[in-house]
Design a protein around this nucleic acid. Structure first.
Lengths: 342, 342
DNA sequence: TTGTATGCGTTATCAT
DNA sequence: ATGATAACGCATACAA
């Protein structure tokens, strides 16, 4: 009954009594073909259940209508949220998202960028500013439009759509300082190869230094972005004698912060009376927790959307701006207060 | 310096003084070409920075080495986790994941499945058992190997790699019954078009009925999978007079359950003394919350991996089994206890 | 507005 | 083991 072989543009052309060129036009630029003919072709397309052959189209037109997205992991809610937004935006514009996960490994990233280029993506979205030179060289050399996201910096040669991680960390740290904290510790993400994690710590140090304070190396712990790791780091920090303890903790993201809060509570400490804790990301959960989490709002959806728009306009040659800085917002909630000692 | 146009297999052939066929062999089946020649070709490939042209390969070989994944959303941590696992597995096997999000809309799903077929994916992974007939027909007609996931059922014609949502819900409800609860309510996900949400409620009802109990329509609330919605539903449930209240709540997933717990606490209720709450998914956070959440462990990573393996073996023709049932596990934690009234 | 014909870069078949 | 060459399905420049 149904044809066994997928019908091609030739089958449609034959069935409709037109040329393949006309079928192609009906499919791609319907408005330039006479309505009567168009309808005849469209009817055959429907009857035969014709499905366009992407590979053939890509080969002939040198456009795959595909965008590659390369991120560290999808196990992080804030990244998934960004990717979700990218997908919507790309899809709305007729593009398909091709996904690749690096697990925070730059060598892997290079391999995957390469593979996506082989797959013929028309553009690429990368995460962060840290990349192997090879990766950027490959992209540039082969003229594959791309944008980096999740980080913005003035003095960079890479196009980016992101926010200023240093500045955001500085602001929230300043908030702690304003509340009277003098001994502030940081539970950061793994900084090696992760510019966002590094920049956040730089922001913390910068704020502290401006007030004549310091982040002692004892007060800086690097942890993978997991609740358990946040708990462990907090435990370590709180195991010290009471007057050798930080009164406030900056956490590299909300997952670590949640871990820190839970550990503090489980140690019998009251947050924020005994210790203040702030996070980064503003996950949907942050405002609901008790105590609610003071954190930095990261505009993951807007950023994903903006990054998609950016490469889309690059592909269509309508690219005007070089980079885009998105604002973050300090979300002050009850988790944080002045330390009781003051 | 660098060539402007991307080099083709012809350029390599010319530079190495061999035929394009040989270059192709070096690239695809290196072992069947004489080492000396092979090395010569490989050197040119490296020198010229040759990158394979996926579209051309796909056209000539009728294989794109690409798999389409169509899911409701990436804003749900449990789904992202599954997709993350799929991506890893596919990538390890030389395949690339192409992603599409439906926002729980079956009409959208059809459109997107169609689009992915146009893109030439070699196979497809769908989520759940509910789909438009058109979607399945298209897949079947065009002989696109596919598997559905996140749900398993004996009597189904669709290949699936999933777990038994009904049974899992039944078990956790039975747990509540065993603890002495007689009045059990449910905060379910939106059931329309969502077989997982529906099956879970069916499981709840089934367990209740077996014990001569019922789920009154007042005690069943449908909510989107969001913390806020969980809170609202809980508020509604708890606004009734004390002896018209359920003593235990089944939640359609952990996000709803977390909302319910937070709302209960914010109403001054003690969980689980005043009301028991159970969830579904076993998110990483579930065990850390205080009280920790009694929930059903959903093996998202294993399932993602198994689904990827399934379509991979379908593509390579090594498909033996028709469907795969994965086990869930009841995670009993302190959230749940017998109601004080008993 | 429509048709003709070439080429896109690779794989695979068939020789050698 | 290697080379020549015909598909693969479509877009597009050009012709009509």
């Amino acid at each position: 009954m149904e044809p066994d072989q997928a019908p091609t543009i030739d089958d449609i052309a034959k069935a409709a009594g037109v040329s393949t060129a006309t079928v192609s036009r009906v499919l791609n630029t319907p408005n330039i073909v006479r309505p009567a003919l168009r309808k005849r072709v469209e009817d055959r397309v429907r009857e035969l259940g014709y499905v366009r052959h992407g590979a053939a189209r890509a080969l002939a037109s040198a456009r795959s209508h595909t965008v590659g997205v390369v991120i560290p992991t999808l196990e992080s809610a804030i990244f998934s949220s960004g990717v979700n937004a990218m997908e919507s935006r790309l899809r709305e514009n007729g593009y398909t998202l091709v996904l690749s996960v690096t697990n925070y490994d730059h060598a892997q990233e290079f391999i995957q960028v390469r593979r996506l280029m082989e797959r013929g993506v028309d553009a690429m979205i990368l995460l962060g500013r840290d990349h192997d030179d090879d990766t950027i060289r490959l992209l540039t050399q082969r003229k594959c439009p791309f944008v980096t996201t999740w980080a913005f910096a003035e003095q960079t040669d890479l196009p980016c759509v992101g926010f200023d991680n240093q500045e955001a960390a500085r602001e929230i740290t300043q908030h702690l300082i304003n509340l009277g904290h003098r001994r502030i510790a940081a539970i950061a993400g793994i900084m090696n190869g992760n510019d966002r994690a590094r920049d956040r710590v730089i922001g913390v140090k910068s704020a502290l230094n401006t007030s004549g304070l310091e982040l002692s190396s004892d007060d800086l712990i690097e942890s993978p972005y997991e609740v358990t790791a946040g708990r462990e780091a907090m435990k370590k920090l709180m195991s010290r004698s009471e007057n050798d303890r930080p009164t406030a903790i900056f956490c590299g993201n909300d997952v670590l912060a949640i871990g820190a809060v839970l550990e503090a509570q489980s140690l019998g400490l009251d947050v924020p009376r005994d210790v203040s804790i702030v996070g980064f990301d503003n996950l949907p959960l942050a405002e609901h927790l008790r105590p609610a989490l003071t954190t930095v709002h990261v505009p993951s959806r807007r950023m994903g959307q903006a990054a998609a728009d950016f490469v889309l306009s690059a592909v269509s040659g309508t690219q005007n701006q070089k980079s885009i800085a998105l604002p973050t917002a300090l979300m002050i909630r009850e988790t944080t207060a002045a330390p009781r000692a003051d």
